[in-house]
Nucleic acid binder design. Structure first.
Lengths: 330, 330
DNA sequence: TTGAAAGCGGTACCAA
DNA sequence: TTGGTACCGCTTTCAA
């Protein structure tokens, strides 16, 4: 038989109300009685029932985080930070992997299982926006595609990231700088490319080449091979993500073209494997900790009805210089 | 104001009981009335309250999956399979990242938020076993360290994996076969090494060298450098995981030693990056789909009180031959 | 500081 | 096939 709050009340000789107060760290419980209650709980091996608490309070103390994939270093750090920040607020994280909201039947929102939701890099964000707004579930979008002014979101300055990466190559003395961009339906890809172009323009340079891939290592690899076969290699490349950067380096090294001696390469995202491989990849790191913290912050403010300055928070990425970039050979 | 089952009852002109029946797809509701209820639900934009249902039923319909890290391709596939299999059983998955059960305060088990738990590659599994057994929460361990006969677990035949990997190298004609093993406190490491040794023994060969790493790319890299500096390279290597295998290849290629032309390398786990990099890594793949399915299966049987043959299910890994292995040069 | 009683939103039993 | 009602376990008034 399940141990309920009544059993604890009986055992401790106090009422369920007092037990409940102890459970909620309420003030106004005589210390002596609090101890009695705690003792009874321990002896009975009592654990409160989450469903009953949620029902009575109208809150679950759970925040959902919906991600589209688990294959990303980015994710790991964001999840950690979100977990920790939430904990400080007395909330728990329920992670859910879901490619999209096809049937508007996601269990987290279906029955109000969460007090709020964070949605990471959504593909079809509008669906979430519509559904969650309708259900009045507070939510925050991270790294979303379209900026909807009425919606809370945390985004990263991708233009700046592309700019900084390219600027770094220019400052090293490169002039033949190519770019491997991502799919155009990702806002981030487009912005990074804009940053690349802007940096070149300011330096009076032309793009040496611009190729396109879909964030797969093989895309970078094949582009590298193509360049080598055409015997038209840039001296520096800014790739829209680490996968393509590593793929490119892989192709070059295989043919004995050394990075960064012959070609410098900059990636984007700071994936684990990219920093672990030699040469350690120069890349642009997302401010993962800040992203996680900010998202929770925005969510808590919504839930607690606090005033909010701006619904959109834009964070800055950070160039991390490692060993895949160097001055060009003369 | 929240829309409750009473509102639906009123609107549809039926009782809450009937509404509840519709909600649970109960038989014995006149089709006409069912429609009335459904219409009312739609009009009112009604969504049942999960907490109330859980409380009344004594079940949450949620299964927790606790993982120690998100940095693993293995995980992604298992999670997908678990999600799908659970769905077929009418359950939802709540994923939680937690390094261990330090304070025995994991929210998933703290307040019976789940009907069951799957724990993936736990470090300190005893803590879970003790706590969950005490709370009578059904659970299944995946890839656990110690086999506890009284506990349900899904494990993989790591001995076989090590054996197959090594056997593959032997069959290619290699005789100078080294091994990079993992930390000895992982049962899987120990078993894979045993498989390696057994395969060699059967072929009348001696280990060419055995080094140890901690599943980091850099470990493989440094071991590779060490071998090269000592000018004592094996012609084939079986690494205990893909990270170390890739790190090793990285070191070799950097010095112009070609894989598999000069050295063949086999990894373990089939991580995404390992199969994407060139040469595509020959590796041993965990049966992720089967693992996920089996774990859910064992859990459901526990929950439903079905008879169970064996509490431990051992699955077989599978060697995947790609381009990092070839016959030795004469 | 404490407790009695009325919910929170469903489900389940029993009777109609 | 339908509905009245007790109840799931906890929190929240309100009064003492």
């Amino acid at each position: 038989m399940r141990v309920s709050i009544f059993d604890v009340a009986k055992k401790s000789g106090l009422s369920v109300v007092t037990v409940s107060r102890v459970l909620n760290n309420s003030s106004s419980v005589r210390e002596k009685n609090r101890q009695k209650v705690l003792d009874a709980m321990r002896e009975l091996n009592y654990h409160p029932n989450a469903a009953a608490r949620s029902l009575a309070k109208g809150k679950t103390r759970i925040i959902g985080l919906i991600v589209t994939t688990l294959q990303d270093s980015f994710l790991d750090e964001v999840v950690n930070e979100v977990t920790n920040t939430l904990e400080a607020h007395g909330y728990y994280l329920a992670l859910s992997v879901s490619p999209g909201l096809e049937n508007e039947e996601h269990y987290l929102i279906q029955e109000d299982r969460v007090d709020g939701l964070i949605i990471l890099s959504p593909i079809k964000e509008e669906q979430y926006v519509v559904e969650l707004t309708k259900r009045k579930i507070p939510f925050v979008l991270i790294d979303n595609q379209k900026i909807i002014p009425s919606v809370f979101n945390v985004i990263v300055n991708n233009f700046q990231g592309g700019y900084d990466a390219t600027r770094h190559l220019i400052e090293l003395g490169h002039t033949k700088i190519a770019h491997i961009r991502g799919p155009e339906y990702f806002l981030s890809s487009v912005e990074r490319e804009k940053g690349y172009r802007q940096a070149l323009r300011e330096a009076g340079l032309q793009p040496f080449a611009i190729e396109q891939g879909a964030f797969a290592m093989d895309d970078g690899y094949l582009i590298g091979r193509k360049w080598m076969e055409a015997d038209r290699l840039p001296t520096a490349v800014f790739a829209c993500d680490d996968n393509m950067a590593v793929g490119l380096i892989n192709a070059l090294m295989q043919e004995g073209i050394r990075v960064p001696d012959h070609v410098s390469v900059v990636g984007y995202d700071d994936q684990y494997f990219a920093s672990a491989l030699h040469p350690h990849l120069t890349t642009v790191k997302q401010p993962t900790v800040q992203i996680g913290r900010t998202a929770v912050d925005l969510l808590m403010k919504q839930i607690n009805g606090n005033a909010i300055r701006s619904k959109t928070v834009k964070l800055e990425p950070k160039l991390i210089v490692r060993n895949s970039t160097a001055a060009p050979r003369m």
